[in-house]
Amino acid sequence: MSHHIETAPDTKIFVEDEGEGQPVIFLHGWPLNNRMFHRQKQAIIENGCRYIGIDLRGYGQSDKPEENYSYNIFASDIQQVIKELELSNYTIAGFSMGGPVALRFAVKFADKDLKQLFLLGPAAPSFTKRQGYELGMDKEEVTDLMEALEDDRRSALENFGKNFYYQDVPGDVRAELLELSMQASKQATISSAEALRDEDLRDEVGHIHVPVTIFHGKHDAICGFEFAEDLEKRIPNAEIIPFEESGHGLHYEEAEKLNKEMLKRLR
């Protein structure tokens, strides 16, 4: 089953909704959509849980309004989806950019039914370097990426994808990555990169009191493993599960281990 849920005037969010049982809400990374989780979706459904895969606005099959895209806007949309589907006792799994979106949701929008967070290679607490924080990319590097997206989005996304995996993955896997990336709107891709460059969650993640599990590739060249180590220090009830054979694409490179570790915590 799929839904198109209106979360704001003239903006509908596409949601895949399959299986029965405890809901697990999946939030994709930049610049993908929920189809990236098809290996997790199958495991979730087969093990008695309900897969809720959201295409963030501007991505996949969701509407693509011409506006700014921020963590707050994404998190507000998630809140409306949860209300519309009357979800309870739910877990949120956020990959890459979906990680800080999940964290922002947990701080500002969550209700008592949020059970736990899964962060998969999260781009948090800050994707870029800033005063007192030396992890991540320089802000200028992200600005350069935004300009490249403006000039030739396909080429810019192809270059981005070169750093996605640690393992030598088949060509069709890289082709799928680019295909999903090109389904996003140009505006969403650039504006979301701006959010990744400018947003900083360091001061708010300490207010999260549900269990948080951080699944992170040791060879992640996009969101370094140091992000996970920093988050573990800042979040009161956080645990890191390292993935020794993965880069950023742990959902593919070590899918079996990821599925097993998530299901262990869902039970």
Score class of each variant (00 low, 15 high):
Ala43Met: 13
Trp30Ala: 05
Gly60Thr: 01
Ala102Cys: 07
Leu258Pro: 10
Gln167Ser: 11
Lys139Asp: 10
Ala255Met: 02
Phe37Thr: 07
Lys162Ser: 05
Arg202Trp: 06
Glu176Lys: 15
Gln131Val: 08
Gln40Ala: 02
Phe160Met: 12
Ile73Tyr: 00
Ser192Met: 09
Ala195Asp: 02
Lys257Asp: 03
Ile54Phe: 05
Thr91Gln: 04
Glu239Met: 07
Lys64His: 08
Gln187Lys: 15
Val169Met: 14
Met36Thr: 14
Gly132Trp: 07
Val24Arg: 07
Glu18Gln: 09
Phe160Thr: 07
Asp198Asn: 14
Ala156Phe: 01
Leu87Phe: 09
Met146His: 03
Ile78Tyr: 04
Ser62Leu: 02
Glu134Tyr: 03
Ser70Val: 12
Ile44Leu: 12
Pro242Cys: 10
Ser191Asp: 12
Tyr59Ala: 13
Leu145Glu: 07
Leu196Glu: 02
Gly247Lys: 09
Lys83His: 09
Ala93Asn: 10
Gln42Gly: 00
Ser155Trp: 08
Glu179Val: 12
Glu194Thr: 13
Arg154Leu: 09
Lys129Leu: 02
His4Cys: 09
Glu16Asp: 12
His38Pro: 00
Ser96Asp: 08
Ala75Asn: 05
Arg197Ser: 03
Gln22Lys: 13
Ser96Pro: 03
Arg153His: 02
Tyr166Val: 15
Pro100Met: 10
Pro122Tyr: 09
Gly53Trp: 02
Arg174Ser: 05
Asn159Tyr: 08
Lys233Asn: 15
Glu147Val: 06
Lys162Met: 11
Phe26Leu: 15
Tyr71Trp: 06
Arg153Trp: 00
Glu176Asn: 12
Glu20Tyr: 08
Lys233Leu: 12
Thr91Val: 14
